[in-house]
């Protein structure tokens, strides 16, 4: 009766065990076991613009994707390189302003400004963060938290690029579909690209830097170079997102350095599952629409996602993605002990 104790057992599915190594793929079933989640994700993302009922929700999709790119860049930097950057807004703002300046001052069309902003903005961010790269942990987090505030104040104080009014009248994308597919494809490319990248030999260097930077130095590798490279990858992703944002709203201003862009991607990463790369994207797809629904309530949405964030840090610190992965790859049963 009550003296009988039960224990939950988790066992890997046989198919997971066999398909873990690359060589063991023996049947279509195993192949589809591996590819199904990826296929569902890709197909789902690509069909989103058709599924959304109206303009408003299509716009929300674009915003979700922009946050997803930011969250990806945060996750990559924090959990694969060990640099916790609280400055997502710095990337967004820099990218947004670069795109805005290129478009409104030089008349370059959005097709070119987005990749240009990614490269130029990434370079600017990397250069500005270069002196901070030797910093660790809390120190790096604080300094990156300060950068967006600093940029906003500088632009305000010197009245640069339209000052507090920002740059208005920037070209939008040619059509809503172009806009959405651009951001969706960017998310997919970054997601799968980064997942592949972190398992390459060069990706291993980043993990090693996170684990133990002294040993990497003793192995004759210049860690500043690799950290700078990682920051460049992450910041150019963020800048690209910023450039898209500028063209979507046809405006760039100091509110692009606002806290939202720093805190929401972090919340999404924690909720989705830190260090999984797919988790942050998932987290954005949950958080951003809900916070859009709360838009009428003003600042309540910040309260909402900050409290969700605290809740997840406390009670589910491994995130939804890890939970789903476990359900997919293992089965559970109660056994007597």
């Amino acid at each position: 009766m009550s003296t009988q104790k039960l224990r939950k057992e988790r066992i890997d599915r046989g198919i997971k065990v066999r398909s873990d190594g690359l060589y063991a793929l023996m049947s279509l079933r195993e192949l589809s076991y591996l590819t199904l989640p990826r296929f569902v994700l890709i197909a789902g993302m690509l069909s989103l613009p058709f599924l959304m009922p109206d303009m408003y929700w299509q716009r929300v999709i674009s915003i979700v994707c922009i946050y997803a790119i930011l969250a990806l860049s945060f996750d990559f930097l924090a959990h694969y390189v060990g640099l916790v950057s609280l400055g997502g807004a710095f990337f967004i703002g820099t990218g947004g302003y670069v795109a805005g300046i290129l478009n409104s001052y030089y008349g370059i069309p959005p097709v070119l400004t987005v990749p240009l902003a990614a490269i130029i903005g990434g370079a600017i961010c990397t250069l500005m963060l270069l002196p901070c790269l030797p910093l660790k942990g809390v120190y790096f987090a604080i300094v990156t938290l300060m950068y967006p505030l600093f940029m906003a104040r500088i632009i305000e104080a010197f009245d640069l690029f339209g000052g507090t009014d920002g740059l208005a009248g920037i070209d939008s994308f040619s059509s809503a579909f172009a806009e959405q597919y651009l951001v969706i494809c960017t998310v997919l490319i970054f997601l799968f690209g980064l997942r592949r990248f972190v398992t390459t030999d060069m990706g291993l260097i980043f993990t090693a830097v996170m684990d133990n930077d002294q040993a990497v130095k003793a192995s004759g590798i210049n860690i500043t170079k690799y950290k700078a490279l990682a920051v460049f990858i992450a910041s150019s992703a963020g800048c690209m997102a910023g450039a898209c944002l500028t063209h979507i709203y046809m405006w760039s201003g100091i509110s692009q350095f606002a806290l939202d862009f720093s805190i929401l991607p972090i919340a999404a990463t924690v909720i989705g599952g830190a260090g999984t790369l797919a988790g942050p994207v998932l987290g954005c797809f949950i958080l951003v629409p809900v916070s859009e629904l709360l838009r009428d309530f003003g600042t309540l949405r910040i309260v909402f996602y900050a409290s969700v964030l605290v809740g997840f840090i406390l009670f589910r610190s491994d995130g939804i993605m890890v939970f789903m992965q476990r359900k997919y790859e293992q089965f559970e049963r109660w056994t007597k002990i």
Binding site: D201, M202, L204, I205, T207, A208, M210, D211, N212, A215, V216, S219, G220, I221
Partner: peptide, 16 residues
């Protein structure tokens, strides 16, 4: 590098 398997520990110096 505790989070890597032993042989991948050597990939890092081999990358230098």
């Amino acid at each position: 590098y505790y989070s890597l398997p032993a042989y991948k520990n050597l990939v890092i110096p081999l990358f230098s």
